[in-house]
Design a protein around this nucleic acid. Structure first.
Lengths: 240, 240
DNA sequence: GTCGGTGTGATACAATTTGTTACATTTTTA
DNA sequence: TAAAAATGTAACAAATTGTATCACACCGAC
């Protein structure tokens, strides 16, 4: 799937809210994960790379605020957008500045969407946020693949534009250096589980990618063909 | 570290508030010093060059307001932003308040940030974008943009009226000639970090601006579109 | 109220990316 | 060596995605 999609975690104890929010935001092209409690949220945060948390402060059991504080305390990265009933707003009185914004319920979806965008944009342009995925930059040969910027920088410091598919394909290789990947596997990776396409489409993608990164596309050195098996990436890869 | 970072002093008796405020503002690239009382604040003001004081008016012991008055009386420079519970707000009003602005608790982090920026900017301490024009006239092609008068003069010496938004947009381009600016960046620049708007609005602004400055708006020569990336200004720009 | 400026949705359009076919080429196998 | 199987890639078609701009609604200033 498209890895540029922002991944939101919605934490709310009311099923209806979760579901309708999800439905709405999915239509607007976000990846959504749901959690009905702070514990579920914690679990989700561990297993997935969440970009933004939409967190209800009023929940039975453990309260949203404490999770918010906790995340901040441990210097976690995701952006936090609190939601609260207007009446409960005073509870933020200790002013929970751990969040990046808050919005009072009931809110209209459009405003929420706008807030999400604003807050993500702000974070995106902010150089200061000390996160940066450890795996943001992958080096091979004299190339650098900057996953964050979706950009490939060549030996001569020239940046090469990659299409989404090419980017995903190359990433797949770099994350599994030396491993032989079948066409089916590559299809899964680049086009998602239930992609409908024939093998030759992978061949083509490979061909296109080779044209961009191989010194001599006719005699590929980086992406090797395994006859009857698939392809593998041969250069040494290092994270940085 | 970065000496251009603004240095804020947070004065509040509640530890939680101090800490969460600090956490939040640090993330937004400010240097922070904390004080839990007016005495501590006075000490901090002596030893560090504080740009702005965020001062709680309601504190046990000596009150924030008196410190505020005192600072003003001695003609001290730091800008002061008062914080107060909504109920205590009357105390400020009517009072000859030496502060530059105030905000009532509980406040939205976004709003506080906006106030801080506004107040710093107003005080002229903000170095404004990439060095604001010492020279207020920017030339490109046969055009002149007079920043001081917010006026655009065309090749035929006719002056073209620009709306505020159009002016900011054009300025943004002229200050970064050749640079590709994404819609998000342009939103930041022309509408501020916290703008709530969608990409289409940038498109429209561009479209409107093109109609005013391009010879043939259908085949723009000055403002170039970078597919999937944003826009850039291509003409050579000179200050004069 | 009117007015200018701006944000939004719809629609039309343009560019890019990807899937497919077709055919050349390479590799394997008999 | 010839036939069969698998791969490479050009070229086109289809799908996807990004952009331009219109019309209209809204908002704040007057």
């Amino acid at each position: 799937m498209d890895s540029t999609k922002k991944h939101l975690l919605i934490v709310d104890d009311q099923r209806e809210i979760r579901e309708s929010l999800k439905a709405y935001l999915v239509r607007h092209d976000y990846r959504i994960t749901l959690a009905d409690s702070t514990e579920a949220a914690r679990a989700a945060l561990k297993t997935a790379a969440i970009d933004l948390v939409i967190l209800d402060i009023m929940m039975p059991g453990e309260d949203g605020l404490s999770l918010c504080r906790e995340l901040r305390a441990q210097g976690s990265m995701p952006i936090i957008l609190l939601t609260a009933m207007a009446e409960d707003t005073d509870r933020i009185i200790g002013l929970e500045m751990g969040s990046d914004d808050y919005i009072t319920k009931p809110f209209n979806p459009r405003e929420l969407l706008a807030r999400i965008r604003a807050v993500l944009r702000r974070a995106g342009t902010l150089p200061a946020r000390n996160e940066q995925p450890k795996t943001s930059c992958l080096h091979f040969d004299k190339w650098v693949l900057d996953s964050a910027r979706r950009e490939l920088i060549g030996p001569d410091q020239v940046s090469i534009a990659l299409s989404t598919g090419e980017f995903l394909l190359l990433s797949a290789f770099l994350q599994r250096p030396g491993m032989v990947l079948s066409r089916d596997q590559l299809l899964d990776i680049t086009r998602g589980r239930d992609a409908i396409a024939f093998d030759r489409s992978v061949d083509n993608q490979i061909s296109r990618l080779r044209k961009k990164i191989e010194r001599d596309p006719k005699n590929p050195e980086l992406i090797k063909t395994h006859w009857g098996g698939g392809y593998s990436f041969t250069a040494r890869v290092s994270e940085k």
